[in-house]
Amino acid sequence: MNWLLSIIYLVVFPGILFVLGFAFFAEWLDRKVYARVQRRVGPPFLQPLADFIKLSSKEDVVPEKADNAIFTAAPIISLAAILAAFLYVPVVTATALHVFEGDLIVALYLLTIPTLALFLGGWFSGNLFGQSGAMRVASLLFSYEVPFFLALLAPALMAGTWSMSGIVVYLYGNPLAFVVTIGAFFIAVISLQGKLERLPFDIPDAETEIVGGPMSEYSGRRLALFRLARDAEMVVGAGLIAAVFLGGPWCPFISLDPGYIAWAVGAAFFILKTLIVLGLLILMKSAVARIRVDQMVNVAYKYLIPLALAQMLVVVLVKYMGWF
């Protein structure tokens, strides 16, 4: 029966369906909280799903100048890469579906693919605004990927393993390790905001500046997929941070019996921690203006990267002194 469990794990929980459902929920939460901060009412609960269905049924236009194959492949590839990355995130117990030494690195690379897909989709859309947005995507790539990677190195160094499940297992044993890497946690959240291209870093698809950037020419099903991919990326990114920094399914009453209650509580705690990270992402965007490309590079290289490096130094010192 092990293969059946694996299939349920892959498809239903915590696999594809869970991520997609959570993605819709995250979008709703994002829009609702943003609206309420602005004293608006905000969308009803099923609005993101309704948007997805409606967009899917709309006419799907590929511009004449666009490269059809890449234009179509970009949203699919980005969604696929995000879903693949989620396989390495431990959700229910400390072990994810597939564990090997170095899966953190693989997940990080998989999470970079949507950005590249967005770049290609925008570049080959044949639209001036799409191309200019694609250039912004490409030039910003290193501004947030480098601090994101560096920030996630801190807990990996702490646990002494490149495996996400390994880090979670380490956090099971040493929950206080979070306190040491708290700086890296905030850097990771800020870089994730940049990775997701949300305010104040929504430079590539700035609506009032370059219309919608790489997404300008997308419509119908492809746009629906791209939007879903972005929501899923938000969930997976937040889940990854929740797992690596906050210990994923770790909770104070870990030794529950029987096993399935422990699983349920573990999953609930994972979702709770992901929601905390999501909440930070949402609040971050509610009181800021969009910054410029050059300012974004400044923020990344002047503040985020040096801070991430300092955090790694702290981790090394703590490990050397033998406090953890």
Binding site: Q38, R39, R40, D202, T208, S286, A287, A289, R290
Partner: peptide
């Protein structure tokens, strides 16, 4: 709104 500060815009 032009610089993406929609909260100020709404207020």
């Amino acid at each position: 709104h032009e610089i993406g500060f929609d909260t100020l815009f709404m207020y």
